[in-house]
Amino acid sequence: MGDSHRLEYVWIGVVVAMLAGFTLILAYTSEAKGYGTPDSAVTCDVKKLEEQITPGVRQLGPGIYEVNLVGAQWSWNPNRIVLENPKKVIFRITSADVLHGFEIVGTSVNVMVMPGYIAEIEWMPPEGLEGDLLIVCNEYCGLAHHQMKATLTIVRG
């Protein structure tokens, strides 16, 4: 029995070390490398959306864009976004009705979109990324959920 107790403690040590390692890696990548989570704490009034968000693209500086989007059953507004040589993109997204999910396929852009809240995220597009990217809604939002899509075109030059 003594031997089996030793094995138990060895295994518990392995488990604790492994999970402590994951925790440290996560803390490092999110704090030092900036891979945090969307945590904007901005609320809005769905009945007066036009006062709080203007759908469309604003250029804030060379390569720096702010993209404002409103999701509604079953489309994104705007549904065609073109960005030239983007270095940094700030998305401000809300919903006019139910929950939606904003996903740019093939990228790390993936955020929940809720009525009453404005999600704000920053994205640094990889330098090689170019062409048309599919934007989908990845949170079920009603019977035509699968028709909710848009296009992001990245132009390099």
Binding site: L26, A27, S30, G36, T37, P38, D39, S40, A41, V42, T43, G101, N110, V111, M112, M114, Y117, I118, A119, E120
Partner: peptide, 14 residues
């Protein structure tokens, strides 16, 4: 399940 939600801080998620 709510990592991608706005309105909840990074601290709570961590």
């Amino acid at each position: 399940h709510q990592f991608m939600d706005p309105g909840i801080s990074g601290f709570a998620k961590f």
